[in-house]
Amino acid sequence: MSPLNIRAEDAVQELLEFNKKLGDGLKTLADITEIDIGVTPKEAVYKEDNLVLYRYTPIVDHPNPIPLLVVYALVNRPYMLDLQANRSTIRGLLEAGQDVYLIDWGYPDEADRYLTLEDYIQGYLHRCVKTVCKRHGIQKINILGVCQGGTFSLCYSALYPQKVKNLITMVTPIDFHTSDNLLSHWIKKMDVDLMVNTLGNIPGELLNWTFLSLKPFRLTGQKYLDMLDSLHTVDAAKNFLRMEKWIFDSPDQAGEAFRQFIKLFFQQNALKQNRLILGEKRVDLHNITMPILNIYATEDHIVPPAASVVLNKLIKSTDYQELAFKAGHIGIYVSGRIQKEMPATIGKWLDTRS
């Protein structure tokens, strides 16, 4: 018996249906003129080099008196948190009564080649925190760190615990040597010195294709076959194109900071080992005593859950809580179901501690 039992008439019918979907999809794409992203109103309140600190316009009469600073990763653009109005973490936080600020790291250029992690964490991030504090006449703020931005936020909170009232980490890697971390296995033996010395700044496109290679069939093949089912209306097509725009909008990475991050975190696992030194200061996780909400995705292939939940064993906070969602690394931001729950939960958690 043949292992493939395909009737010719069924194959022809499937091909005709595929061609019809393709034709209809092309007509839909022709009707799209612009893809809107970052839809929530905001204003720039501080600028330094390529960095811009934004404050989003509050939408409740009396927002939380302790503002929330969102610290995103360097490797992607932060508008993932505000991709569209009905699936916006930022808008959800505003609706939950939070006064939200966000750091946009911008696009590093050749002048940023020698920026270090100290420049980012003890320089840019620290000055943004002080700016927010000064604007509100307070000494401490709330911080929400996302992915690599969560790792930065942990480092900052350990170095400057007096500046952080509450800390939220979201899909944040702490243990970079978990057995299920494919990205870490790849990077452990990478000659990062050769890469940085040769390229200077690391091209964002190179990193982007590295992430896509973690699931090559799903993210570079199957996705585009499934795309035809997303092109039946203009709104559905825009949703797909917004994601595509974000995925391929990857800033270059400042060479020295990239070198440090690979060596200290991926190769030495220094944060988890509690032996990380930035500049002349030790990043002692035992200094983290403020309340912590640790949010992770159970199906995350970039930051596996085990890489995040280890945090509870490394800090001294007596107010630690975890919040898990059944989603992947990106799905946690674009799932309509999660966006109805997660920002509201964050808002309630902060309100009871402010």
Rank of each mutant, 00 (worst) to 15 (best):
L144D: 04
M290F: 08
V71C: 04
L69K: 08
E341G: 06
L51G: 10
G106K: 08
D180V: 04
N5M: 10
I332N: 09
Y320V: 04
V283R: 03
C128H: 07
G336A: 00
L74W: 13
M1C: 06
A73V: 04
Q139M: 10
W246D: 08
L51P: 09
N312L: 10
S2K: 15
N86Y: 11
V171M: 03
K263V: 10
Q13K: 15
N274Y: 08
A73F: 08
L350M: 06
S157D: 00
E256W: 13
E34Q: 14
N294L: 05
L264P: 01
D49I: 04
M170Q: 14
N208Q: 14
T198C: 05
D104G: 04
G38E: 09
K223A: 13
G137S: 04
L182E: 11
D191N: 15
T169E: 04
G145Y: 05
A257N: 02
Y296R: 01
Q260G: 00
I247C: 09
D193F: 14
E256H: 13
C155T: 07
E9V: 08
V171C: 02
W246Y: 12
I302P: 01
L51A: 13
E17M: 11
I138N: 01
Y296S: 03
R242K: 11
I302R: 02
L53T: 04
D99S: 05
K189N: 15
V132S: 09
K316E: 07
R353H: 03
S308F: 01
W209R: 15
V164T: 07
F152H: 13
M80V: 15
A158T: 05
G328K: 03
S213N: 03
E48T: 13
D180M: 09
L225P: 10
Y120H: 11
S354L: 09
H329W: 03
D61P: 03
N274K: 14
V129R: 06
L144N: 00
Q267G: 04
T233H: 11
L199V: 02
G106T: 01
G23M: 08
M243F: 15
F261T: 03
G38T: 05
